[in-house]
Design a protein around this nucleic acid. Structure first.
Length: 490
RNA sequence: CGGGGCGUAGCGCAGUCCGGUUAGCGCACCUGGUUUGGGACCAGGGGGUCGCAGGUUCGAAUCCUGCCGCCCCGACCA
């Protein structure tokens, strides 16, 4: 196995190699699409299961809507079409035939669809077209539905997990009787995402609201969580949209309230995708490979025997199995790797590459002393632990590593968040230090656009916790009442 | 869509300029043996429509024409 490119040599190359070498995913033969391999999918499954539980706890139910959307639906909400039209895959035919001129098959020209179908880039349109028939009265509200699905956005440039033509995600779509309730739902789900990011992914995020130009196509407001990667670039890790009555009006979804006249329904939608995998990778991993927070690691600990001959292996394996059994009782997933075709050194490197949080090694010396060597992936520290304390020690390490990772990421973010009040410093910090920049902005899309064109930095969000203060726009000098968060972004 | 690179064994590549034994190397794989506290070693072995389609030639991975695909860098996006 080749050595990884180091992060300092070429961060982007490091990421690409890591994803492939750690066996998370690979490029498929289809342009822009990826194959998520079992080890990568195991992480995604954990994320999915935890999030799914959180959605259920907040009262949501899962459902499933079609992959295909009639073309005409897309055009019903003006801003929505405009946002997605450029990246839609379109189904025009429904049949193949043998090529009359030779080998292979061709599209049967007689099998043209009357109305072309769009492969969903997101499902607002088909869902709201469906909700129309589900909703008559306030008694039918709220509708709190989520779906786990794949979507397709025909991207020019793709990167494994971060941006692929097809990706997996969940999309929540809710319908409410009042604006207040819909706004509350939007904010609630953003808090769910932030909670997941920080407490499961060990990835600190900034909660905030997008500016008009970064808003979801068709939304009144887009709330987001923004994380900071190790190369100083920001990554949008989840979004929650307050859709107002835009889709209700576009699809004519009205309800009869308890009192008063028919009114349009209020909507939200919210989603996170396999992009979270990219965020997870880039938040914690190092030049040796993946570093995974224990709460999302498919394997918590691996036991590696070091031995000469079958007899010694049998003795060590017996001890190892006892430790593994204790750990399983404690709810951990453990692997005892007694594969004789690989040497211990190879296994050490391999499990480091794959980010297994803890490694337990035991050799003849340990057998004599009644110890095992316990190594943690995040710090690389090794210590000798008495056999009878091994399981408890490993179990305790899980919490410790989880905490350490989130604290390390918080420290990194704090060190890479800079308050800036003048334009030269802004450019300098962005160029030489990277990270988040807290600066005043005059609130106009024009200024935002100019800053973007000159520096590639965008406003990631207006943080929830930004305090009101008098200031001057870092670019125009015009008055501003709060700082916003700038960064170069993925 | 612009710029660059690449397509030869599962992966990574050499060979292509200047056509000529049976297309080669490393890793991986299979068999046997020796090894085993940080990516072992020896011996033997299997595996190829040289991206596709035409053409030139006695002869094409190599030359010509056309096509297809992918990766990287830019403009757009989760």
């Amino acid at each position: 196995m080749a050595k990884l490119t180091s992060r300092s040599d070429d961060y982007s190359k490091w990421y690409n190699e890591l994803v492939v070498q750690a066996d998370l995913a690979q490029h498929s033969d289809v342009k822009g699409c990826m194959v998520i391999k079992p080890y990568g999918f195991a992480i995604w499954e954990k994320m999915r299961d935890v999030l799914d539980g959180m959605f259920k706890e907040t009262g949501h139910q899962n459902a499933y809507f079609p992959l295909f959307i009639p073309k005409s639906y897309m055009s019903k909400e003006a801003a929505h079409v405009e946002g997605f039209a450029k990246e839609c895959a379109v189904v025009t035919h429904y049949r193949l035939m043998n090529d009359p001129n030779g080998k292979g098959v061709v599209v049967d020209p007689d099998a043209r669809l009357e109305e072309e179908l769009i492969v969903r880039p997101t499902s607002e349109t088909i869902i709201w077209n469906t909700y129309k028939n589900w909703i008559q009265s306030y008694r039918d509200l709220p509708i709190l539905v989520n779906q786990w699905a794949n979507v397709v956005r025909w991207e020019m440039r793709t990167r494994l997990f971060l941006r692929t033509a097809e990706f997996l995600w969940q999309e929540g779509h809710t319908a409410h009787a009042t604006k207040e309730e819909a706004v509350a739902e939007t904010e609630q789900m953003l808090r769910v995402y932030a909670d997941f990011a920080e407490n499961w992914m060990a990835m600190p995020v900034v909660k905030g609201v997008k500016t008009e130009s970064e808003r979801f196509a068709g939304a009144e407001d887009t709330h987001c969580i923004e994380a900071l990667m190790q190369d100083g670039k920001a990554l949008q890790a989840g979004t929650s949209h307050f859709l107002g009555q835009n889709f209700a009006k576009a699809f004519d979804v009205k309800f009869q309230p308890k009192e008063g006249k028919m009114d349009y329904v209020w909507a939200t939608s919210w989603g996170v995708s396999t992009r979270l995998m990219g965020a997870l990778i880039m938040t914690h991993s190092d030049d040796k490979g993946l570093v995974l927070p224990p709460k999302l690691a498919p394997i918590h600990a691996v036991f590696v025997p070091i031995y000469k001959g079958d007899e010694q292996l049998a003795q060590i394996r017996e001890k190892g199995e006892a430790i593994c059994a204790d750990l399983r009782k404690a709810g951990l997933t453990v692997k005892l790797d007694d594969d004789d075709s690989k040497r211990s050194g190879w296994k050490f490197a391999e499990y480091e590459l794959k980010g297994v949080p803890v490694r337990i090694a035991m050799g003849p010396r340990d057998m004599e002393n009644g110890t095992v060597e316990i190594a943690r992936r995040d710090t690389g520290e090794k210590e000798l632990v008495p056999l009878d304390k091994a399981a408890a020690h490993v179990a305790a390490l899980m919490d410790e590593i989880q905490d350490k990772l989130v604290n390390k990421a918080r420290t990194y973010r704090a060190n890479h968040t800079t308050k800036v009040d003048d334009w030269d410093t802004f450019k300098d910090v962005l160029e030489n230090k990277g990270g988040f920049i807290e600066a005043h902005w005059d609130g106009t899309p024009e200024t935002e656009d100019k800053i973007k064109n000159e520096t590639k930095a965008t406003i990631r969000c207006i943080p929830y916790d930004s305090i009101e203060e008098q200031g001057k726009c870092v670019y125009t000098g015009n008055p501003s009442r709060r700082r916003v968060l700038f960064a170069k972004a993925y």
